[in-house]
Design a protein around this nucleic acid. Sequence first.
DNA 1: GTCTATAGCTAGATAGAC
DNA 2: GTCTATCTAGCTATAGAC
Lengths: 187, 187
Amino acid sequence: MKKEKVRERIIRVASELFYKQGYNSTGINQIIAEADIAIGSLYNHFSSKNDLLQAYLVKEELDWFEGFENSVSKISEPKEKILALIDYRKKLQETSKFAGCQFIKIVSEIGEGNPSVSGFARQHKEKQKEVIRTIVNEYAAQTKQADPDLLAENIFLLIEGAVITSTINRENNSFDQVKKLVRGLLP
Amino acid sequence: MKKEKVRERIIRVASELFYKQGYNSTGINQIIAEADIAIGSLYNHFSSKNDLLQAYLVKEELDWFEGFENSVSKISEPKEKILALIDYRKKLQETSKFAGCQFIKIVSEIGEGNPSVSGFARQHKEKQKEVIRTIVNEYAAQTKQADPDLLAENIFLLIEGAVITSTINRENNSFDQVKKLVRGLLP
DNA sequence: GTCTATAGCTAGATAGAC
DNA sequence: GTCTATCTAGCTATAGAC
């Protein structure tokens, strides 16, 4: 295992804090304290707090898709892939103690006050939806599904609803109920 | 029309700012400037910024249910009530320029850092779900629905997903797709 | 490239005159 | 009960020694 470089440590620490506490509630001073570096070092690697925020979003997107690929790589059946995606989001909620989706959170906090952030989040969610659409199209090719795009959109919405609901309620029932419905939608 | 009292004006101004900009991004100084009062007056009516936050949440909950009642009061068919609820959330998104759900936003921003806030949001969402459950049970009584609670849960999740997605994408397509699916689920 | 010291500003909150 | 003046603490960011 290579030694973690300073820049990577900063991103890791900042990401954890932005995610758990929120971006505005996380100060530069807290980041440098927990990363155990001086403030001059931080500003040597990042030009501003907003610059760190961009690095956070890039990292979270990479992690998301990496984790997703690991979750479905051994599965060939489209229907099982969808169920594995739901289980993946469920697992992310558990391991983060129901901290929610990073991209929903940052849009909720900053919104259109920072267009590059909201634009990034928009693109990220579009990629997630595209993943679902691809799988549903595989499924539709096998089973003559009536309207695969509508189906993909609604599976996406159900999962998003489950994530936000599980965040608010701090429990994961919603994912199981989504799985029940999705099993019905994908007979 | 009675003259708006100072306390009401503070709550109105603060609510708009908390909703549009976020709670942490809204300063006391901005609130008193836009409400056109002195800071001493604000702290005469509210003991802290957190106290204002509580008043904001109470107000938004009242407004939500008042608006909902207005939207469905003239409708008797359960299925149409569900569709009217979806249209209500859609209209809220349009009139707020896709600012999203106040309760999802505040939980995303503050989370468990303020348990009384997250608890309030949790209860609010439970009330929304109860509304759906009541309507779906009416529907089930007429049509021998297999599992009305599962159906209600999934309609709730679809709507939450549509709200968050319409907020991120700044357009309302999701609600129309939810309506299509719900029409299928309520034959 | 990492450090310390600090500038410059804004936050939430309080005191006391009127 | 509304006002002005002010406190303390925190913020992001920069300067300059090493």
